[in-house]
Amino acid sequence: MIKVKGLNHSYKKDGKYAVNNVNFEVAEGEIFGFLGPSGAGKSTTQNIMTGLLQLQEGEVTVAGYDVKHIKNEMFNQIGMSFEQSNVYSKMTAKENLDFYRKLFDVETREPQDLLDLVGLGDKGNIRAGEFSKGMKHRLTFARSMINNPTLWFLDEPTTGLDPSIAADIKDIIRRENKKGVTVFLTTHNMYIADELCDRVAFIVDGDIKLIDSPKNLKLQYGEQLVEVEYIKDGDVVKESFSTIKTEDKNQLKDIIDKYEIQTMHTKEATLEEIFIKVTGRGLK
């Protein structure tokens, strides 16, 4: 569904690249996570793929269309939910969706259905300018589905949403994906990437450092740990032990035998920890 080969982009065309020799492919029906800290080149790559930025160097094919010579009909097949909500504040939620649906040449979804889907069903006749940040974000998300996209770009889709609404949004993404929609998810939130993505790419300073599935990454880079809190000489002590290393296993046995255990649970390495391990950088 997406093919990116040798992608370079320099904003000032001065040899300093925001993305540098980026290569990856996204298969049809896949949820692909593009992960990296702010300024890593995520948005630049996404903007080139969606035609918002002009392709300078490299080959990019999106939904079968060459982005070098972009055709307007390509946009009938793609949807995009922006990180910063961008809806017309002087128009109602329904008018916003109605306006956008008329710009597409394909069958579109009913605005009311989409509003119901994102929990704004009873807010259709309210101007978006009166919406909270989270409601605007949901409206932006709903709009990105209006043309039944086969390729769906999602930029930080759960940012600023409360946990229950974020969970609803994640459910919608899963449901759409099950219908066959390919999802390109840009985020610096490793938890949502871990939950949703079939594969993830780590990008830092314009370079893709790694591409793999979260499961493989955990197997490859993660370490199974047991975290124990116990009482020793009247103090609470907290320690982590590997479940693989013999020395750690023996130490853990010893603690269980000798001390009063307060809490004990297994801990899997998170994508964030793996990201830091692989790239040497945090995600903020």
Binding site: F75, N76, I78, M80, V87, Y100
Partner: peptide
């Protein structure tokens, strides 16, 4: 200016209008 304030120009560019 309204489009700039609402940041909607980018959304329009992701539709089939040239």
């Amino acid at each position: 200016i309204e489009e700039k304030i609402d940041k909607t120009i980018r959304a329009i560019h992701i539709t089939p209008i040239s």
